[in-house]
């Protein structure tokens, strides 16, 4: 069963940017892409558990703030060293100007 959680307002996130969302002891990163779609991944980098919300979003890539590992935030795929383990990704929908994530 889907478990849709209200994460934030759609315009809380700048275009091509990311914010942090914490829920029930877990932490996530919620993204808005340059083409105005929304995505959600695990919050912590798989290299050294650093929060990705301080990182840089360019196109569909999130670059970790610590050692510049990169992921495709649409799929969670690790795309640049030093990261080699993918991120978990979660379904997202936007309803009534709110971003909902299924976690």
């Amino acid at each position: 069963m889907a478990n849709w959680i209200d994460a934030c307002a759609a315009d809380d996130i700048d275009e091509e940017d990311v914010i942090r969302f914490d829920h029930d002891g877990r932490t996530f990163a919620v993204y808005r892409s340059p083409d105005d779609n929304y995505f959600c991944t695990d919050g912590l980098c798989t290299h050294e558990q650093v929060h990705l919300a301080d990182g840089l979003v360019m196109d569909h890539t999130i670059e970790c703030p610590k050692h510049n590992g990169q992921f495709d935030y649409r799929t969670g795929e690790a795309t640049r060293t030093p990261v080699c383990v993918n991120l978990g990704v979660y379904p997202v929908k936007v309803e009534g100007g709110r971003v909902l994530i299924d976690i």
Binding site: V50, H51, D54, G55, L56, E63, P65, K66, N68
Partner: peptide, 11 residues
């Protein structure tokens, strides 16, 4: 503190 400067340094 922490990664406060990271994004701007990358840019």
């Amino acid at each position: 503190v922490g990664n406060a400067v990271a994004k701007d340094i990358k840019l």
